[in-house]
Amino acid sequence: MSERIPILRIGDTLLVSVQTDLEDQTVLNLQEDLADQIVARSAQGVIIDISALEIVDSFVGRMLATIAAISRMLDARTVVVGMRPAVAITLVELGLSLGGVSTALDLEKGLAKLSRPTSSAPQ
């Protein structure tokens, strides 16, 4: 009965747009589906858009870090985009710094980040 969040594909990038407050089970489903899709579609990058999310608690935060780690293992890069200021402040206060997760202000900048070569030197 739990929902599944649709995963879109643009080129070799997978795009997930989280639109609503998530049930824990939906979060776990997403984690599973993404791992499957990265392999099935041999994706190079994953973008998770959380600009509609008003709350990111430690459970969702951990999911983001886990997805980033899983996709790294499957040779894809993950960028989390659109985190709201209030959410960012809250996560920092909570003690979650999402080390290892790369971030971008919005979808466009996230795509740009993925298209850059892996070495972090700009362009």
Partner: peptide
């Protein structure tokens, strides 16, 4: 310090 970490979380 927290501001800087929060900015990083947002991608800046």
């Amino acid at each position: 310090l927290k501001t800087i970490v929060a900015a990083r979380l947002m991608g800046a």
